[in-house]
């Protein structure tokens, strides 16, 4: 019976089999994502009575737009920094064999064993006034007194990069691993020096992985909450913190919902723009 639906013998799945397999996933998406999102967005235009007032509030007050732009800016910084750090790691992984790959993968995934909260707290410890980094800076004489590292945008960017970098490494590694070593040889014998080989062959073939990792990190950064809340300065809020503040401190659900609406709009537009240019189905590797 089950075998009839799922065809473990390699024959094509029946329609019923496909539907059954996808059902739990769609159920989850519907109840845990679509339904809450739609009801939240409906709050933003329906309460207290049908109105666009909440959206006007977002647009009218420059503070809210500043927060939104700052969020986009930080997400961009985090994505770029992740890319810069992740590419060499992915390269090394793709070039290594057997136990070395396992070791590097373990190093990358190890932080996932602790929660985001713990990792963020760790950065707070490192960056605080008398933390390791400040002490170190003074020891080697770069500064004479502690500098403000914690509660800055820099702290937020660094800590978020730390948390999100693995999402950049894995798709790039996937793309790199799919490039046969013979391509580099073919390019070299055609007269390409190593830099040219990288630019003309490796870079274009890894692009789907880079774009994939970039989107993953960028979109995740946009909605990041704990790290900016704990390490950032209250004067330089990101949008997730703003939304939570509206809900918990001012109990202004309709306005918070309107902020979510604006954020969703941005995410949708950015995603669509990317998918116009790049194919999402290549995101998880598949260079060739």
């Amino acid at each position: 019976m089950i075998a009839e639906f799922f065809r473990p013998d390699g024959r094509h799945l029946s329609k019923a089999g496909i539907t059954l397999l996808m059902l739990p996933f769609f159920a989850l998406i519907f109840f845990a994502f679509l339904y809450p999102l739609v009801s939240l967005l409906s709050i933003s235009v329906l309460e207290p009575q049908p109105t666009l007032e909440n959206y006007r509030k977002v647009v009218d007050n420059p503070i809210y737009l500043t927060v939104l732009l700052r969020t986009l800016w930080i997400a961009l910084l985090v994505s770029l920094l992740s890319l810069a750090l992740a590419f060499p790691v992915a390269w090394l992984m793709a070039r290594s064999k057997g136990p070395k790959v396992a070791f590097i993968t373990a190093c990358i995934l190890l932080p996932f064993w602790s929660s985001v909260l713990v990792r963020t707290a760790a950065w707070a410890v490192l960056l605080q006034r008398h933390g390791l980094i400040n002490e170190g800076l003074q020891l080697i004489g770069i500064t004479s007194e502690p500098v403000r590292l914690l509660y800055t945008q820099g702290a937020v960017v660094v800590a978020m990069t730390h948390v999100l970098m693995p999402f950049m490494v894995l798709p790039i590694y996937g793309a790199l691993r799919n490039i046969p070593a013979d391509y580099a040889r073919a390019a070299a014998i055609c007269g390409a020096n190593p830099l040219r080989t990288f630019r003309e062959v490796y870079l274009p073939l890894t692009m789907p992985g880079i774009i994939g990792g970039f989107i993953l990190v960028f979109l995740t950064s946009l909605g990041y909450f704990i790290t900016p809340a704990l390490l950032g300065s209250p004067q330089e809020m990101m949008i997730a913190t703003l939304i939570s503040q509206q809900i918990r401190e001012y109990l202004d659900w309709p306005f918070a919902a309107a902020l979510v609406g604006v954020l969703t709009l941005f995410v949708t537009v950015i995603t669509l723009a990317f998918s116009k240019v790049f194919r999402f189905d290549r995101m998880m590797g598949g260079a060739a």
Partner: peptide, 20 residues
């Protein structure tokens, strides 16, 4: 001399045309 300076032609066993 490194390969890219040898001005030699080569055909490999596996297909090595660049897919992009």
């Amino acid at each position: 001399l490194p390969p890219h300076k040898r001005n030699i032609g080569m055909v490999f066993q596996h297909y090595t045309l660049f897919p992009h």
